[in-house]
Design a protein around this nucleic acid. Structure first.
Length: 530
RNA sequence: GCGGGUGUAGCUUAGUGGUAAAGCUCCAGCCUUCCAAGCUGGCUACGAGGGUUCGAUUCCCUUCACCCGCUCCA
């Protein structure tokens, strides 16, 4: 009966989320639906804040990133090009004897768990037929539901960015290096949704595709490529190669998480080993958070080379190369040996990609030569760094991190445990609770409502006059509201003119109270919650 | 999809083959009430479907959801 501690903590979090209106089970009145969750009033505010902060941080506060909002359903050919139609459909077999589940294509390589001397394919366990398992949700476009009308709900937002790369490039007046950002829903028909909202079938992503020059191009223009270096590399420089850009985005993303209240000590950086990397990835760093159920991924930052743009160029027949005047000029001035060396490196990379993609070697050699010859004309296919974050996972991380319990024993010796959600003020669903000390005194109520109206244009406020003042503070603590403003009799001038039109500002984390003139309230609270 | 566990108000729990109990929360009211005070009143539940039975929340079957393992990577 005794559950692990982490499980108890998760149960408390789940219970609080429902009780206070952060997260509900989807379709609950019909018994729920596995892998789908709804955000209640507080959860919706929290999520908006997080997405807004990400957008401001990634798009508005920079000159080099443009936004995009693409459709969820796109041409199914996008998912053929991206590889999702093939790689998202692993045939699986189950063994009824040992209860194991295996990928059918690996049955010859995986030892049987019960009889390791034999492979799964040759052991005596009773196995099911291989079942195709595509993680993409399918639907049909148009009234006819046949093979020709099949479409998919996007399993990631990234592909739309690649598909619209040329349009954004032409209309945003950006030049490489630059990024395209998108926030939106994605859908995966997961085998096993698990860990509350952590692995959901419908979820939201915040993705940036940051396009950079291939190292050969950087070297041709700058004469060198800066090494990856340690720590945050600072302001972007034109001699950065992919490794430094990758490092830069890892550090930027960690800074972002710290800025919204996830302490560095709760985060881990995991550099995938060469064996773990996808074949097109040069490096991938996972940013992990210590969830109560284990340390799990919040975001992956992948250096994906020019794989995605190349795939779409190949599958759509539309060129994805960009023109760069600087490259054309610089190429002319290169010493011949270096020009030859860069040509060769670029050629070999292209040839490698093409042959891995199934292009026959002869054709690949010709195409790679064309591509490398393009350098002299200033043409190249950009590489990309992809910081890809899960919104819902981040919400869960923020909730888990904010959750804290405080036990207090009152004068009568009664001990009770209260929950305080210690959200960073920037993400807190409600910034300020406005409370009249007493509900049954019209003067207090009227004054408190005036304060509410004063703050409302600037901050998310919540007016509450129900129950005792202590109860209302406690309610706001559970909602994670960082500040409460209380209007009392001093505010009305009953204790002398010097306290008239001042209110009590009470801090969530310390319960400390400060007397503040109403005239200074908005500026002070805006400063503290920004 | 396979195996194990769980399912009673918003939350946490009690209970029975014969009309379901409590605490907290929530709502309304009283009270110059600053950290879930007190008093009065109120709403709300046996996850869903089927079967056995005179009668099922309780017994049986199915299903759904959640938790723990096998898979996954936002």
């Amino acid at each position: 009966m005794a559950e692990p501690r982490s499980n108890e903590l998760m149960e408390k979090i789940v219970s609080l989320c429902k009780r206070r209106g952060f997260i509900y089970q989807s379709s609950e009145i019909y018994g729920g639906i596995n892998g789908f969750w709804d955000y209640g009033p507080l959860g919706a505010e929290l999520k908006r804040n997080v997405k807004d902060l990400w957008w401001r941080h990634i798009v508005h506060h920079r000159d080099d990133v443009a936004g995009l909002e693409a459709t969820i359903i796109m041409s199914p050919r996008i998912w053929e090009a991206s590889g999702h139609v093939d790689t998202f459909s692993d045939p699986m077999i189950d063994c009824k004897t040992c209860k194991g589940r295996f990928r059918a294509d690996q049955a010859n390589e995986i030892p049987c768990p019960q009889k390791p001397s034999k492979m799964v394919s040759e052991c005596h366990g009773e196995k099911t037929e291989p079942r195709a398992f595509n993680l993409m949700f399918t639907t049909h476009v148009g009234p006819v539901q046949d093979d020709s009308s099949v479409a998919y709900l996007r399993p990631e937002t990234a592909q739309a960015i690649f598909a619209q790369f040329k349009n954004v490039l032409e209309t945003s007046r950006q030049k490489v290096p630059f990024g395209i950002a998108q926030v939106g829903k994605a859908f995966r028909n997961e085998v096993t949704p698990r860990n509350y909202t952590f692995r959901s079938r419908e979820f939201e992503q915040m993705e940036l595709e940051y396009f950079i020059k291939p190292d050969e191009v950087v070297e041709a223009i700058q004469g060198r490529v800066a090494p990856a270096g340690d720590g945050h590399p600072g302001e972007p420089q034109s001699d950065w190669g992919w490794q430094r850009w990758h490092k830069y985005w890892v550090e930027e993303r960690i800074r972002f998480y710290e800025s919204i209240g996830l302490p560095r000590t709760t985060l881990e950086e995991y550099w995938q080993t060469p064996e773990e990397l996808a074949h097109y990835a040069r490096a991938t760093v996972d940013i992990l958070f210590q969830f109560p159920f284990g340390t799990q991924e919040l975001e992956g930052i992948a250096a994906r080379s020019d794989f995605d743009l190349s795939q779409h160029a190949r599958c759509s027949g539309k060129p994805m190369a960009v023109f760069d005047e600087e490259l054309r000029t610089a190429w002319k001035d290169l010493e011949e040996p270096r020009r030859q060396a860069l040509w060769q490196r670029y050629h070999d990379a292209r040839y490698g990609y093409l042959t891995r993609s199934g292009v026959d070697p002869e054709a690949a050699a010709a195409m790679a030569k064309d591509d490398a010859d393009g350098l002299a004309k200033g043409n190249y296919v950009p590489h990309v760094i992809e910081p890809s974050a899960g919104v819902d996972r981040l919400i869960l991380a923020l909730i888990a991190n904010a959750f804290s319990e405080v036990s207090e024993t009152d004068a009568k010796g009664k001990t009770e445990t209260r929950v305080i959600m210690r959200f960073h003020p920037r993400v807190a669903p409600i910034k300020v609770g406005v409370l009249p000390l007493l509900r049954n005194k019209p003067e207090l109520v009227q004054k408190a409502k005036a304060v509410r109206d004063l703050l409302r244009p600037h901050l998310t406020v919540f007016y509450d006059d129900g129950g005792s003042i202590g109860r209302r503070y406690a309610r706001q603590d559970e909602a994670g509201t960082p500040f409460c403003v209380t209007v009392d009799f001093e505010t009305l001038g009953e204790k002398g003119p010097e306290l008239a039109d001042t209110v009590t500002v009470r801090e969530r984390d310390t319960a400390a109270q400060t007397r503040v003139p109403i005239a200074e309230l908005a500026a002070m609270l805006i400063a503290k919650t920004r």
